[in-house]
């Protein structure tokens, strides 16, 4: 399943993986529910294989979007699903702001390239 707009793309077509790219600055955490609608089920319903959330192509994300991303970490924690979050050093906010997500869940690995 791929959701694509002029500003961003959310791709959940591969099993055990989701990638988010572009610019996402939606007005509130709840406004992210629609573009991210398939990701929670991918985390909950998948196997116990590692789930990869690749946001390395995401150039901008506002704090409402950070809240929405945090939700995926909490869902993985609730379901005990190992998770890798792939970040990019090209966007300085990713490492600086999301790096501490690791403190939320021992099963989360942050990869920054």
């Amino acid at each position: 399943m791929i959701i694509k707009t002029e500003s961003y793309q959310v791709d959940c077509s591969a099993p055990n993986q989701a990638s988010i790219s572009g610019t996402m600055r939606l007005p509130s955490p709840s406004s992210y529910e629609e573009p991210f609608q398939h990701i929670p089920n991918c985390i909950k319903n998948g196997s116990k294989e590692v789930f990869i959330l690749d946001i390395s192509g995401l150039e901008f994300l506002n704090s409402s979007g950070i809240t929405a991303l945090g939700k995926f970490v909490f869902i993985a924690r609730q379901t005990n699903r190992p998770m890798i979050m792939r970040l990019s050093k090209r966007s300085p906010w990713q490492d600086k702001v999301l790096g501490s997500f690791q403190r939320l869940y021992d099963g989360l690995t942050i990869e920054s390239n």
Binding site: S28, P29, N62, S63, I66, T67, W93, V97
Partner: peptide, 8 residues
């Protein structure tokens, strides 16, 4: 309201 903007 996430309240995270300033904290981030």
């Amino acid at each position: 309201s996430s309240g995270l903007g300033i904290l981030s």
